[in-house]
Amino acid sequence: MKEMQPKTTQETLLAVDRLSVEFATRRGTVRALENVSFDLKAGEIVGIVGESGSGKSVLAFATMGILDRAGKITSGRILFDNIDLLQIKRSQLRQKRGKELSMIFQNPRAALNPIRKIGRQIEDVLQAHANLPPKQRRERVLELLSLVRISDPSRRYNAYPYELSGGMCQRVTIALALACSPRLAIADEPTTGLDVTTQAAVMDLIVDLAAQTHMATLLITHDLELAAQYCDRLVVMHAGHIVETAKTSDLFQHPRHPYTAKLIAATPDPEKDLAHLIPIPGNLPDLRGELPFCRFRDRCDRASSQCDTVPLERKLVGNNHQVACHNHF
């Protein structure tokens, strides 16, 4: 699969370039990501959407350098500020992580230490990455807690995670992630498991903070509607491939890849009734062993003989709109 060289402009903060990741399992090698490229500019919010098993979390973990031991990056570069994160030393990466790159996890309760006061946990991060005298550290923690809209920060400083609701815990992990004013935050399904009203509040918060601090945000989600509301651009993944990237409005008005179109058609929204909710046939292919050039081939109704014989290339089909399909709309 040939890819276009991502354009590295001044503004580009993160550029993932032809990244491939494999997982060695007992029953063969899973090709979890293949030739994945996208970029992210400072202050931009990009959503990575796809079904479970599409590789979106693997992509996030690989970018953060926290892939499971079984996962191996077989090729590609991850350029953060024009430095390849795959080439620098572990200690350097650790320095960047938490300070310049940070992550908001799916399960806030699991991401917090249950037996340490939340204020202390945020202080720990500051201690590790920011040069602040202890007194100012506490001030900064209180500042962060009010930043994430936790009422009565000086009282909550002494709270343990179990004393807080799920939404509150997620606010704390956001405060943790933002403690050192990172330039890039990766939010991996940050609102899964939260109530709808809480989900809206948490997402509002993330987006507001990103705008305030000019932070680039990568939102990883299975919820197309949610991504549509909050993201500037969307990256659609299917079975370890990026099938389409476009500005959010373009993607929804004119989806070019058959999978994107089907995904939109399958997502319930207020204007659709049940008859207009179209399921996507088939399942994700098994990522072990031989795979066709296009991994959507077996689920696609636009497939032609070309799909079996010609490797996919990513085509520019509009303003910043890329699609990897021979028979795109």
């Binding site: 809206a200 509040a201 959010t248």
Partner: peptide, 23 residues
């Protein structure tokens, strides 16, 4: 009202949920 406002709408960039505090 808040529940309905929390349904994501493409490109609205902000939800219209008008809730405060904790339950």
């Amino acid at each position: 009202k808040a529940l309905i406002a929390a349904i994501p709408h493409p490109n609205s960039r902000h939800s219209a949920v008008n809730l405060k505090g904790e339950p």
